[in-house]
């Protein structure tokens, strides 16, 4: 078991470095492909600059070096988790991200729990059924997978904020302002989970141990939850990285709909201001988190499923 874990860790570490180098390359090209002089972007004033001042700024940020040197410097910098500084505010990108991380994590976490709850309910209720229950399952899944999250947010706002007045229209204050954004972000994730859990549950319900439980006279709902769901969960966990990506990408939209503070907002402001280091930084952060989540899942998998511990 120890050996397997070490192998996984080593493979994942190489993968993580590859992703970071790839992402850094992408980021470097992004910064240099952006039209306009980076020096002017750094200073934030266009045209009104003497050549001398321009050279000073260029030297300070290493922009006077040959591109190849700049490239390797940048990749090294990223590998040490230094994401550079904002063109606009001059603040380190990592600081900008960590300061706004909490509201986004709060939102993502709440949405994840909700998505699992919705998917559990739908899967337990509709897996391996016929007629109207099956139809409900299919329609829920298809709708949840097709509906754009910003529209869900707007519909929720119309009904629960403007008509009923139950929840605030925007903001970050308190649990009440978290409800509608979390539901909005949960729907697309739930769509994915319903697919996987339903399929997993249907497979599990064909297993001999389910037949055995039924023969003992166990209630159908109990069989589904206690015996089936545990098996259906494993394939769902493999999708952790994808789900995480969906939460991060989705939070950009949800934070915009509900005017919430968070990483998504940082990213949108950066795009509007052409603040490429910040845009690249958020992207690098998302990619890194994706790798970390996948690594944790791989390790958890070995710990949960004893069959994987057999040395190859």
């Amino acid at each position: 078991m120890q050996r397997t874990l070490l192998q996984i860790l080593r493979r994942r570490l190489i993968g993580a470095v590859a992703v970071l180098i790839g992402a850094a390359t992408l980021g470097f090209f992004a910064i240099h492909l952006t039209p306009g002089d980076p020096v002017l972007l750094l200073v934030g004033q266009e045209g009104a600059m003497s050549d001398e001042a321009r050279e000073q700024v260029a030297a300070r940020y290493g922009l006077d070096q040959p591109l190849v040197v700049q490239f390797f410097a940048y990749v090294l910098q990223v590998l040490t988790f230094n994401l550079g500084s904002s063109f606009r505010s001059g603040l380190p990108v990592s600081q900008m991200i960590s300061e706004r991380l909490a509201p986004t994590l709060e939102l993502a976490f709440a949405a994840l729990i909700l998505a699992f709850l919705i998917a559990f309910l739908v899967a337990v209720f509709t897996a391996n059924t016929r007629g109207w229950r099956k139809a409900i399952g299919s329609i829920t899944e298809l709708t949840a997978a097709s509906v754009p999250s910003f529209w869900i947010g707007i519909l929720l706002l119309i009904v629960f904020s403007f008509q009923l007045g139950w929840f605030p229209v925007f903001g970050n204050e308190g649990l009440r302002s978290l409800v509608l954004p979390a539901v909005t972000l949960a729907v697309p994730v739930a769509a994915l989970l319903i697919q996987v859990l339903r399929k997993g549950l249907e497979d599990a319900l064909d297993q001999p141990f389910v037949l055995a439980a039924r023969t003992r006279g166990a209630h159908e709902t109990y069989v589904r939850i206690a015996h089936g769901l545990r098996h259906a969960l494993l394939p769902a966990i493999t999708l952790g990285g994808t789900i995480f990506g969906g939460l991060i990408g989705g939070s950009v939209i949800v934070e915009s709909v509900f005017n919430r503070d968070g990483i998504g907002r940082v990213l949108l402001l950066a795009i509007e201001g052409r603040d490429i280091p910040v845009v690249v930084g958020v992207l690098l952060f998302a990619a890194l988190a994706f790798v970390v989540v996948n690594t944790i899942i791989d390790i958890a998998y070995v710990l949960i499923d004893p069959r994987l511990r057999v040395p190859a």
């Binding site: 990408g249 795009i271 998302a286 990619a287 994706f290």
Partner: peptide, 19 residues
């Protein structure tokens, strides 16, 4: 391709739009 798959679609598209 695997490296590119680590980025959520919408973030990747936003990077291109930013540039």
């Amino acid at each position: 391709v695997d490296v590119l798959l680590a980025f959520p679609t919408i973030l990747m598209a936003l990077l291109v739009v930013a540039i």
